[in-house]
Design a protein around this nucleic acid. Structure first.
Lengths: 105, 105
DNA sequence: GCAAAATATTCCTTGACTGGAATATTCCTA
DNA sequence: TAGGAATATTCCAGTCAAGGAATATTTTGC
């Protein structure tokens, strides 16, 4: 699993940007406006998200539309696979426990 | 989604600790040894993982066994749900595209 | 209670990150 | 081609995080 993805999402404004872009691609100006950021701050955060591969840019007239890229999140999803097994095992044990309870009563 | 989880996992050593603890709970000393960390560094990282809820401690004799907690990762899993929809939609479109190709030939 | 093992904390220094302000760049349109 | 809108970059100051070294704390067993 790539640490850069976590690092990019570890900043509240950047996480907010990603969640915002889930709805639809947006130009810098609107992102800044919706999140109450100054435009330079928005650009800087988008740069980092871009370097982490979490977004991609599509120029449109004199604006730049930023759009979510699924790959890093898919990687996260795959990474979580191993951990899902862990907590499902715990769930199984809980089921066993509840079954035992039922048998005893 | 809680930024603290990402923040905790954004440090390579801490990510390594989490991945190490997936196999089995371990005392500080062994964690430090397996990851080539000084003991104080290991303790400091474990403190942060603990504050983020990613691990829990169980004292055993004069050692402290650190163990993975699934909750934050489950939260991540739930958070990813929204994004899964996104990339599955893209996959669907890919399927449509491939179907079209087949019909044409 | 004391020594030793295991772990936690503190202090210090250094490097990285963030926001603000100013400025530069890019690209469209008239 | 000049002006203006949209965006990117730079510079600066303040803050925060990480590692190293030293030290403190806790717990056990004798």
């Amino acid at each position: 699993m790539n640490v850069q993805t976590f690092s990019a999402l570890a900043e509240p404004h950047r996480l907010a940007i990603v969640e915002l872009l889930l709805d639809e691609p947006l130009p810098v100006g609107e992102i800044a406006e919706k999140l109450n950021l100054n435009q330079p701050q928005a650009s800087k955060h988008l740069r980092i998200l871009n370097e982490a591969g979490l977004v991609e840019v599509h120029p449109l007239a004199n604006r730049r539309i930023y759009k979510l890229r699924p790959e890093p999140l898919q990687e996260m999803d795959m990474w979580l696979d191993s951990y899902r097994r862990m907590w499902e095992m715990r769930m199984d044990r809980l089921e066993d426990y509840l079954n035992d309870l039922q048998k005893k009563n």
